[in-house]
């Protein structure tokens, strides 16, 4: 009995909604819109539609997305965390040959202070904060992410051109914010060699 009345209510609601939408549509069509304005709206819709489709196609077919891996971490106890323990930071090559770079942001520096990475190679950065909100940007590249305490910011990117790049904190993190920066050397792919310790996956165990 109960389920039947719920079902009836649902049907009733849907029927109402349908009539209302129909009425809305009729009233909407009756609005006076100047023919010129109608054309302008069509052009606007086309432009907006074009921009949205470029973004959506890039996202779904070319994998062009901002960082967004929702992964949590306890920022207050990074020193007890295996992955982000001090000797495990920096550039490593995992078993499959992928380059993973683990970095810690804390007032007022990025650790380690300097890293060497190869050009034209996909690099996966894993950033964590040990205190407050930070952001990191390597100007002239796509390496940009917020570093929110409590979360791991993971971003994969490729640097096309070798050179010395600054790595800047781009989110207000305290009075010393502008002193928070370090350097990254992008080395031509053929000249780069993986750091020795990268074979010892997981680094030293400080349990």
């Amino acid at each position: 009995m109960q389920t039947e009345s719920v079902k009836q209510k649902c049907e009733h609601f849907l029927r109402d909604l349908n009539t209302q939408l129909h009425e809305f549509y009729i009233q909407f069509r009756a609005i006076h819109i100047d023919p010129l304005e109608r054309k302008w709206i069509a052009v606007s819709l086309l432009v907006v539609g074009l921009l949205v489709s470029i973004i959506v196609i890039d996202a779904f077919f070319h994998g062009i997305n901002p960082p967004g891996k929702v992964e949590t971490v306890d920022s207050d106890s990074l020193h007890l965390n295996k992955e982000f323990a001090e000797d495990n930071l920096g550039v490593q090559v995992d078993g499959k040959g992928a380059i993973i770079i683990r970095m810690v942001a804390g007032r007022y520096s990025f650790f380690p202070k300097h890293i060497d990475v190869p050009s034209e190679t996909p690099l996966t950065f894993r950033w964590v904060s040990m205190d407050v909100l930070h952001g990191v940007h390597i100007p002239m590249t796509n390496m940009s992410t917020m570093i929110v305490p409590g979360y791991v910011a993971e971003i994969t990117t490729t640097f096309p051109k070798p050179g010395e790049y600054p790595m800047l904190c781009n989110e207000y993190c305290g009075l010393g914010h502008n002193h928070m920066w370090s350097n990254i050397s992008v080395i031509a792919k053929e000249d780069w060699t993986a750091p020795v310790k990268s074979l010892a996956k997981g680094g030293s165990n400080n349990e």
Partner: peptide
């Protein structure tokens, strides 16, 4: 967009 706590 650049934040880690929301999914793409």
């Amino acid at each position: 967009y650049m934040d880690p706590e929301q999914a793409k």
